[in-house]
Design a protein around this nucleic acid. Sequence first.
RNA 1: GGGCCGCUAGCUCAAUGGCAGAGCAGCUGACUCUUAAUCAGCGGGUUCGGGGUUCAAGUCCCCGGCGGCUCACCA
Length: 490
Amino acid sequence: MPGELDELTQARVRKLDALREMGVDPFPKKYERSHLSGELIQHFEEIEGTTVRVAGRLVGAIRDLGGSGFAHILDASGRIQVLFRRNTLGAEGFSVYRLLDAGDFVGVAGKAMRTRTGEITVEAAELTFLSKAIRPLPEKWHGLTDVEKRHRQRYLDLIASEDVRRVFALRSRAVSAIRRFLDGRGFLEVETPILQTLAAGAAARPFETFSNALDASLYLRIAIELHLKRAVVGGIERVYEIGRVFRNEGVDRQHNPEFTMMELYQAYADYEDIMELVESLVSSVAVELLGTTRVQWGNDEIDLAPPWPRRTLRELMIELAGVDYAAYGDDGALIAAARAAGLNPEDTWNRAKLIDELKSSLVDPKLVQPCFVVDYPAETTPLAKRKSSESLLVERFEAFIGGMEIGDAFSELNDPIEQRRRMEDQAALGAEGDPGAQALDEDFLEALEHGMPPTGGVGIGIDRLVMVLANQPNIREVILFPLLRPRVGG
RNA sequence: GGGCCGCUAGCUCAAUGGCAGAGCAGCUGACUCUUAAUCAGCGGGUUCGGGGUUCAAGUCCCCGGCGGCUCACCA
């Protein structure tokens, strides 16, 4: 609230002034601490009775008892109780204590002890004021429950909720573990352009922007794929990137317009090798972070231990959707079958769209345990290699966990002639108005024409993987600052 | 985009169409082992915005905003 300060803020600003009048700098530059609260608690037996220095934000209530008071401070490792006593602190220090509010940062030096109830506590012999919060913190025992506020002001959510702090720590450690896993297998991490003159490599609507210097329209990338394959053409045989991709599409529990993708490409490998890599990656990350491959997902327990079952798309469609798409030669018959299966297909939907719709509404949600869905019709996947020269199927798999697509992978198409033909087919569909058609990337085709080794590749949705590891069914709970509608009026 | 629900004090929530309230937080005072501290007292409101009905609207009606859930769309 710029301008007018509400009553609570005014009260805190008055305390700020009072500190300055006492000659206390309310915003000093640094504080040397000896322990994090977690270290102190973990090694308390050795530390007990010695003087320690801790620092953090005052959270929860300050239990003021007149000549003494208890409070908790929160630091990066957790909470610890501090005790302020007039006798120990002295009159001057105690008058600083009297100006504390929940939310302020303090440094406390004093003896590590246990209270009568056994709680590990630092009894302050010295109190250093470190920073003033002039706005109040979220209410202390309901915590922060307004979902919008939790997302818009995630810092409050982090202060108020240990669970939320744990989720984002888990996410960070998951990304590190993935990097270690891939580095250990000889992969090189690279960075490729996010601003592109053409958004290719997937079927999605891009965000558009503009370069003043180049006087050209640019797009934010919708996939990393085609640049990483250029790197493979250049001889980087094992390459990956972990980065943001942007899709100008719907927002729901499983979709945020910007999300984090890990894509990797491995020369001389096919999609079978990539399956082994993915199940090994995911299960070993789970073991490293959680100590187990078994994770809770809502009411289900998921076991990430390899091997994951390989099921063909066609058999799953027959089993779970009741539709054998291979039995319907023309699109009209398939539309009728989709309608019979309970969908509302439009007449304009082509075969790829129909299969995708059937799969995503009738098959995907049922794939709770890890599963590789393999062998897709070629028309759904323009960048994948055919199973054999005359096959209608391509070597592609999608990895599913918790009913969500976690990864998408192929034996990469490296025949430049066929790749051009398949991209031209897509371009034709695009010209007919199919918004799901992929763009023809002439520059990429030129790279392929210089020769790419046989290569397997995969893209893994990091956000969704973290959702599974953290048992969070909403993608916004694993993104620190998810995209929200802009606030009106500031 | 559709449906349902919600928006009241800093926070969490009340209020048959009839004086807008409680707990916590805040302020004043008491209290040197509390942890939802306790006890006594005090202040705090554009009831999301706009319009309408009514003697009277937080409450009913209309329009709008934002959010949640859900369906649809979308890799």
